[in-house]
């Protein structure tokens, strides 16, 4: 029983960053822009959050105050949004191949934090540990970061925004048939910009969760594929918030299971670590259900 509870909470913790990122990706892809840069946006957000909190601590001489991690979270979200803006400008204004542009951001996310870390901490792989982490919420047997709660509460909100508001309808129209939406007076370009930046903000929050919520420092490439798995969850979840919720819970469970199995004598850790990725491939091959992407996804819009 104890192990079931531990597994349950571990699943929540592992699923939360996937969920945040996937919900962000949902906006982007529903508007017609492929966002393979989610992985990089998580990393930029994580680095920005951890470095901000650490710098505030250094400047204030190790102050511990409730507002410090929130500032870190804000900066992480902003930096994520900025990276989203870069992707948006490249793929909307300059009609770049969206996958190439996203790949560039992912590669930059491996190198750029290291240069900053080298200047600040004289090493290229980790930041200093922070004292001020985002608060945890007590849930009886265990506690989870407040962002985990936020991630799960966000699901119905996103569903409501996408399917019950005029803005959501326009967003979906832009991703399915931009010409038709334009004829009806929707500003396709602005909708896409908003959606991609929003996806960056959510991925940045997911990154902040990793660096100052789940852990207490930034580690190079700490997202370990979360952005890509979130993309797979998006496909598996049929581009629908509740589907995405189910998919990320499944992937989160696989990761939690991998952690539980590590050090045990059932399967070697190196094999277990590959399980979520194998699961993702099985999902993509359609062994577990088929799904149809938004019709205009990946196509630059030309007036």
């Amino acid at each position: 029983m104890e192990i079931v509870i531990a597994l349950f909470f571990s699943t929540l913790r592992q699923a939360a960053p996937l969920l945040l990122t996937a919900l962000g990706g949902l906006f982007s892809e529903r508007s017609g822009v492929v966002n393979i840069a989610l992985e990089g946006m998580i990393l930029f957000g994580a680095a920005a959050a951890a470095i901000t909190v650490n710098r505030i601590e250094v400047a204030t001489g190790g102050l511990e105050a409730f507002w410090i991690p929130w500032v870190g979270l804000l900066v992480g979200a902003l930096v994520g949004g900025l990276v989203g803006l870069v992707h948006a400008v490249a793929s909307i204004k300059y009609r770049a191949d969206q996958i190439v542009s996203g790949t560039a951001i992912n590669i930059a996310a491996l190198g750029a934090p290291s240069i900053v870390l080298q200047v600040l901490y004289n090493n290229t792989s980790t930041s200093q540990e922070v004292q001020n982490r985002l608060p945890n919420v007590d849930l009886g047997p265990s506690s989870v970061s407040i962002l985990v709660i936020f991630a799960f509460l966000l699901v119905p909100v996103v569903w409501w925004v996408l399917f019950k508001t005029p803005w959501g309808l326009r967003l979906r129209a832009v991703g399915e048939h931009p010409e038709a939406a334009e004829t009806m007076g929707v500003n396709v370009i602005r909708m896409r910009y908003t959606a991609v930046i929003l996806s960056g903000v959510l991925a940045g929050i997911a990154g902040a969760y990793l660096s100052i919520g789940f852990l207490n420092q930034f580690i190079r490439a700490m997202s370990a594929g979360a952005g890509f798995i979130a993309l797979a969850a998006l496909i598996f979840g049929k581009w629908h918030p509740f589907g995405v919720l189910g998919a990320t819970l499944l992937f989160g469970f696989a990761q939690a299971l991998a952690i539980q199995l590590q050090g045990g004598d059932i399967l070697p850790a190196t094999i277990v670590q590959a399980l979520p990725f194998i699961l993702t491939m099985l999902v993509l091959a359609g062994f577990i259900g088929r799904s149809r992407p938004p019709a205009a996804v990946g196509k630059p819009y030309d007036k």
């Binding site: 490249a90 300059y94 542009s101 930059a108 190198g111 290291s114 240069i115």
Partner: peptide, 26 residues
């Protein structure tokens, strides 16, 4: 004392700029 990761960043920037056609006209 500048990390050689700068080359990775340069590569990323080159990919990005080629993706946007070097900001040149269409």
């Amino acid at each position: 004392g500048i990390s050689n990761q700068i080359i990775q960043v340069l590569q990323a920037l080159i990919i990005l700029f080629i993706a946007v056609g070097g900001l040149l006209p269409r």
